[in-house]
């Protein structure tokens, strides 16, 4: 069974339709990039896959579970055990330091474990920034904390929404290289939404969206 299966997904907002029938199958361990202009529905699709939003119509199976059938609380539990998120804005808690921000994810999953959190930060190259507040970190470092936080509970899926949107080219490159390394080590599935063609170069499969529909879907060899 594929890890993500989306069947004729529709999402209507009061003003316009964001998704107009999307079908998509993603295999385990794949790195998929979804690219499209602003308003193409790519973020909506990602949110629905991650259970942050509900579709108007259609079905989403994640690891074989019909996530629309889950209650809000069951969805939370499903998220904490299976999905890691990275957003464009880092969404770090400003009054907690880097380690504690990672520990928050541990707390909601099960138990906070400082040693493990520090270990994870070292792996993303932030061993020297453990007790820094988010405001004391650069944009690239913040995103790396977010990656550590997203992966701390060993999710099988990483959903990233414009993770490099606020970064310059060098930082973008660093973050993506880090992600590639971790992806190769831990074999989680990556679904990354972007509007930057440069970011898609890292992907194994690029899906182009426009106007709530998938236009092209091509695998990149290499």
């Amino acid at each position: 069974m594929s890890i993500i299966e989306v069947q004729s997904l529709r999402k209507d907002y009061s003003t316009a339709a964001a998704l107009r029938g999307v079908d998509l199958v993603i295999e385990k361990g794949q790195w998929v990039s979804i690219i499209g202009p602003s308003g193409s529905g790519k973020t909506t699709l990602l949110n629905i896959i991650g259970g942050l939003d509900h579709p108007t119509d259609g079905k989403v199976f994640v690891k074989g579970t019909d996530i629309n059938a889950l209650s809000e609380d069951e969805l939370s539990v499903f998220r904490r055990e299976n999905i890691g998120f990275v957003f464009q804005q880092s969404h770090l808690i400003p009054y907690l330091d880097a380690t504690e921000n990672v520990m928050l994810a541990q707390y909601f999953h099960s138990l906070p474990d400082r040693k493990e959190a520090e270990e994870a930060l070292k792996r993303v190259g932030l061993g020297h920034r453990l007790t820094h507040r988010p405001s004391q970190l650069s944009g690239g470092e913040q995103q790396r904390v977010c990656i550590a936080r997203a992966l701390i509970n060993n999710p099988s899926i990483l959903l990233a929404d414009e993770p490099t949107g606020n970064l310059d080219r060098t930082n973008t490159r660093n973050v993506l290289e880090l992600l590639r390394r971790l992806h190769q080590e831990e074999h989680f599935t990556v679904v990354m939404v972007t509007h930057d063609p440069y970011v898609t170069e890292w992907a194994e499969r690029v899906i182009k969206m426009e106007d709530g529909r998938i236009i092209t879907d091509e695998s990149v060899s290499g």
């Binding site: 991650g50 942050l52 809000e72 609380d73 939370s76 539990v77 499903f78 998220r79 904490r80 055990e81 999905i83 998120f85 969404h91 808690i93 928050l104 994810a105 909601f108 999953h109 936080r149 509970n153």
Partner: peptide, 13 residues
Amino acid sequence: IGLMKALGARASE
């Protein structure tokens, strides 16, 4: 609050 929910916290948590 949004972040906590994304991290998998239940409403009660």
